[in-house]
């Protein structure tokens, strides 16, 4: 198989807060293949956004390497890194807060073009209009308006247009629909799928909603407290999750079906602080299968079934 477009190896990201270390990402390795959508799920604070920002090196990593199309982003600085970033873009969770409130929509979308050195105004205008139309915004009516005049869903269309205007190869989507209502969410998810096909994109799709991840991903990575629990093809993960935490996440989803009685008592406890993560397996304080080895040895990600990797001493097998 060809090398992945994005390759994350043993990535470590730590934040220093008041003399203490927040272990946000602790040794994550994964690859995203050209043309696929890799979903990344986990509870808030588990390090998803940190990983997403580290991919663009917007947050500098503490250790490990990130390679994009064979080039090491972690080794790059200054102008070379800036050039590389034109090929990798980011879409944020909060569509309204991520747009400059004082700039007109047309200028917001044109900004990456200016940064990339597209001097001709006519050329910029042409590309901004084309991308607006692609994301379903009418250039003539939105061009001169401010973000505050738009709804959350429309602001997310503007962010998507801004991310697409340089025709990148890779987009990190950090919870792009979490802040949106159900009816608007479906519009934006469909739009992302259309844009992926039209521009031949590769996506890292971050979310905490497993149903959303299921709808768009080819493979899914499950993260807990800075580490990966499981990486598997979407169907395998949903039908035969191998990691106890993947199972818990699936069981905890409120199902929009009145004939499925919620199983009471599936979830216990809350994730511990990333300042002092548990020894061994980080999930052990909430895991029903935990034993002595889980406290002493950190489980490594290993192949369990075709394409299904799991980091657990006692994975769930069979159905």
């Amino acid at each position: 198989m060809s090398a992945p477009l994005l390759e994350v190896s043993d990535l470590v990201v730590e934040y220093r807060v008041g003399g203490r270390i927040v272990h946000a990402v602790s040794g994550v390795s994964l690859g995203v293949r050209r043309g696929e959508t890799l979903g990344l799920v986990g509870e808030s604070g588990c390090g998803k956004s940190t990983l997403g920002r580290a991919v663009l090196q917007l947050t500098r990593s503490t250790g490990g390497e990130i390679r994009f199309d064979g080039h090491s982003l972690t080794a790059m600085r200054g102008e070379t890194l800036r050039k590389m970033r034109q090929r990798v873009q980011l879409i944020f969770q909060d569509p309204i807060a991520s747009l400059n409130p004082r700039r007109r929509t047309g200028d917001i979308i044109a900004e990456p073009l200016i940064v990339a050195g597209v001097r001709s105004r006519a050329e910029r205008d042409r590309r901004v209009r084309a991308v607006m139309e692609a994301v379903g915004l009418d250039p003539d009516t939105v061009m001169n308006r401010l973000p505050s005049e738009f709804s959350g869903g429309q602001c997310q269309r503007i962010s998507i247009a801004r991310a697409l205007v340089l025709e990148p190869e890779f987009i990190v989507c950090d919870e792009p629909v979490s802040a949106l209502d159900v009816s608007i969410r479906a519009q934006i998810l469909n739009l992302l799928e259309d844009m992926k096909n039209r521009y031949g994109l590769t996506l890292l799709f971050i979310a905490h909603d497993l149903a959303v991840v299921r709808a768009v991903s080819d493979r899914v990575a499950v993260m807990y407290l800075g580490r990966l629990c499981e990486v598997a093809p979407t169907d395998a993960l949903f039908v035969r999750p191998a990691h106890p935490y993947s199972r818990l996440l699936l069981d905890a989803i409120p199902m929009p079906d009145p004939d499925i009685r919620p199983i009471e008592g599936v979830a216990v406890g809350e994730p511990p602080s990333p300042i002092a993560p548990p020894s061994g397996c980080r999930f052990r304080t909430r895991c029903p299968r935990a034993d002595a080895i889980c406290a002493s040895e950190m489980p490594e990600l290993r192949l369990l079934a075709p394409e299904q990797y799991v980091a657990c001493h006692h994975p769930l097998t069979g159905s």
Binding site: S183, R185, A186, Q187, R214, A215
Partner: peptide, 24 residues
């Protein structure tokens, strides 16, 4: 009816197009 249809389903195949409610 439209709200129920717009929810991504856990048992649908990946890349299934979601029914939408246009406008707001």
């Amino acid at each position: 009816e439209a709200l129920l249809a717009a929810i991504p389903k856990l048992d649908s195949a990946p890349h299934t197009r979601l029914p939408t409610i246009e406008g707001r």
